[in-house]
Amino acid sequence: MENIEQPCRKVASSGTEKSHFEDEALEVIWELAESGEVRLKDIVKEVGNEEGVIGMSKDGLIAVSEDKVAFTDNGRARARDITRRHRLAERLFVDVLDLKEFEEDACRLEHAISPEVEEAICTFLGHPPTCPHGKAIPRGNCCKLYIKKVRPLVQSLPDLEVGRSAKVVFINAPAMDRLASIGLVPGAEVKLLQKKPSYVLGIDETTVAIDEDIAKGIYVKP
């Protein structure tokens, strides 16, 4: 799958804004660093702008000695964030939105989201360890908290254990109107009473039976 990923080089070379360019270059460097030593000429080959890369070393994002390039602390933190956002965006597009063409949008989204949104997406996706191409998603604060809890924060009803209560996070199921009319909306607390032969849920004092098609579309936070 490796060859499918082209992280934002096109956008990078045509980008005019300085910080935008820096973000893209940092991302490239992060990726090169994942597979070994980083050489200036490899970076230039990817982003096509040698002066820009040299400029980054003046701004204290990277250190260049001869043709070897290394991150400064500052640069590493930024590269890490941008890579994380990019790969989370890919996960979102692939897993949730079921898109086939997603790279370009992932490139745009990585610049657009705030740390709060980034954390929300990560939580929503259940703190995925890798991007769709199999590369590691750098861990954020939310993931560290999660590791202590071990359990994914959002799961669909079929993954919930029988007998547990959970809060509904979102619903993308058939019969949404019917669910809403008995109070089953995001934010509601449900208890999973059984899974077989049909799913049975308790919401307040209401008990309702649904089939797997509906249950799969109800996402909850235990």
Binding site: R178, T206, A209, D211
Partner: peptide, 10 residues
């Protein structure tokens, strides 16, 4: 087929 959705009384 319509999905199965039925309230269960006590």
């Amino acid at each position: 087929r319509t999905e199965f959705f039925l309230e269960i009384p006590p």
